[in-house]
Amino acid sequence: MLSSLIFAAGLLSPNPGLIFWTAVTFLLLVFILSKVAWKPIVEALSEREKNIQSAIDRAEQAKAEAEKTLAELKAERAKAQAEAEKIVSDAKAYAEKIRAELLEKANAEARKTLEDAKAEIELAKRRAMAELKDTVADLAIEAASKIIQHNLDAERHKDLIASVINDLSTVQKQ
């Protein structure tokens, strides 16, 4: 128990010689490694860091530029599309207008033709009627004149009256 305590004390008691050697070794190590290793390594690392960062920056810039171009192209395309749409719609409207006009014109023509035809028919009808009237009048006059010519003949008179009566009776029978 006591011996282990003494050993424990030995474990904890600092040794000035070792402290000296540790300090010397460590300081020398810091000095040498700073010169030989840390400086070039850390420099290389930070240079690479910068390189990577600049590469990232460049890539980002290129991306932004590409996006800008894309947006421009998109806007241009949209504009062109709108223009095309406008042209098409204009053409459609024009075509529609022409169609309507033509239709209207055709309708009007047809109507006019119809009216003309109607008027002509009316005219022809009237003319036919007038002609008919004339013809009927002529016929009546002719008949009358014939009747008057036949009046002198009593026999014929009798026959005529008989045929008329005959006709009437057949009409009544029907």
């Binding site: 490694l33 030989v36 290793a37 070039p40 390594i41 420099e43 290389a44 690479r48 390189n51």
Partner: peptide
Amino acid sequence: LVVIFSSVANAYKKMSRP
């Protein structure tokens, strides 16, 4: 440490670019 890290540092020195 000196041997290891000086050799590591040399590898970086040999790089002409990162």
